[in-house]
């Protein structure tokens, strides 16, 4: 892959050893620093790390330049590449000689990605604190000893990731937009499996599931309010659970009345929806969420100009046995049917 290193710029100068040519190359080390060579008139070649050191040898191995340089009496080695920046959504092919993960519980991806020909600077975009739209996430696809694919998600800038059980090697790494992944039920669920205590993701999965199965919610709503099913639609109000206000609202598609003859004009919000999720199958925690949801709906209904109904949706599911085909959930939690849907009317 790497036969020559492009020259970015050069400068000819006089030095104590006579003429010296400083060459800034297009190759970079793992920290993203450009490789600078100095060629002296007497034939010696130095590399800057960050000050100039004489080079002992350069080897090319699987597309990488492995440079040995002397620092006092020590010989140091570093690798440089001419590669591509990983900080755009793309699939990264991992080199065979660095793909093995056997015997590891956790691995660092940084060096493996670098040695596969990609620059790894700018990793702050993988950080959880980067603005939502800018944020990136890495999916690591492993192959296990039975040839099956297993996935782990990485959203820390250190690029460390847990190795799934029985995984033997990395097949590839994929860089994705976090906003895309967290707004996709399968993606969000898989991220949650990599970070099962993340209560924010637990809630996000439920919101996405409700969005997908909104008929469940709307059928119950229409049944209890007497509003024709085709006259309303539910919309999710945020693309990330961490926002102020209700999670969904139900709007009238045309002028309608409910069974109490209360009118709603086209486009008006008829109901607001609060969605809550748990994943620990604890009846008391489920009960807590139901009661908290009720309080929130009371607040929201007081603030809303047009909504006359509050819809509470609480769901408990199992993280590990859920998949992109569907969430796995007990039929009931304590005395509650699961999912639990409650419609309240203002006034």
């Amino acid at each position: 892959m790497l036969n020559e290193i492009p020259v970015e710029s050069w400068n000819l100068r006089n030095s104590e050893r006579g003429a010296a040519l400083d060459v800034v190359t297009g190759a970079k080390d793992i920290y993203g620093e450009p490789i600078i060579f100095t060629f002296y008139e007497d034939g010696r070649v130095y590399v800057h790390k960050p000050i100039a050191h004489p080079i002992s040898s350069i080897k090319v191995y699987k597309g990488r330049w492995i440079i040995e340089y002397r620092m006092g009496n020590d010989i140091n080695v570093f690798t440089c590449i001419v590669g591509r920046d990983i900080i755009v959504p793309q699939r990264l092919e991992i080199a065979d000689d660095v793909s093995n993960v056997e015997g590891h519980q956790d691995i660092g991806l940084k060096e493996r990605i670098f040695l596969s020909g990609y620059y790894v600077q700018g990793l702050e975009k993988v950080d959880k604190n980067v603005e939502f739209k800018e944020r990136l996430v890495l999916i690591v696809c492993f192959v296990d000893k039975y040839g099956e694919y297993k996935y782990a998600y990485c959203f820390n800038p250190r690029l460390t990731v847990k190795v799934p059980e029985d995984a033997t090697k990395i097949a590839y790494v994929e860089v994705l937009k976090y906003a895309d992944t967290v707004n996709d039920l399968a993606g969000c669920l898989n991220m949650l499996k990599s970070d099962p205590e993340n209560t924010e993701l637990i809630g996000q999965v439920v919101e996405l599931w409700v969005e997908k199965k909104k008929d469940l919610l709307l059928n119950k709503f229409c049944e209890e309010t007497g509003i024709p099913r085709d006259a309303v639609d539910a919309r999710r109000l945020h693309n990330w659970a961490g926002n102020v206000g209700p999670d969904f609202q139900i709007e009238a598609k045309w002028d309608i009345t409910d069974k109490y003859e209360d009118p709603f004009k086209k486009g008006e919000v008829t109901a607001i929806v609060e969605v809550k999720g748990t994943a620990i199958h604890d009846p008391t925690v489920f009960d807590l969420q139901v009661n908290k949801g009720r309080k929130k709906l009371t607040d929201f209904l007081m603030e809303s100009e047009t909504a006359r109904y509050g819809v509470l949706f609480v769901l408990d599911y199992d993280i590990w046995s859920s998949s992109e085909e569907g969430l796995s959930m007990p039929e009931s939690v304590g005395n509650y049917k699961n999912p639990y849907i409650e419609i309240t009317r203002r006034g």
């Binding site: 906003a179 707004n183 919309r235 109000l237 693309n239 486009g267 008006e268 100009e305």
Partner: peptide, 27 residues
């Protein structure tokens, strides 16, 4: 833009995921 009674609403949808689907991005 939606206008009803004394209210005006503006909504902007964005696309996420592959295949892309519309989500409410700003309002």
């Amino acid at each position: 833009k939606f206008e009803e009674g004394g209210f005006v609403k503006y909504e902007k949808e964005g696309l996420v995921g592959s295949p892309p689907r519309a989500i409410l991005e700003a309002w």
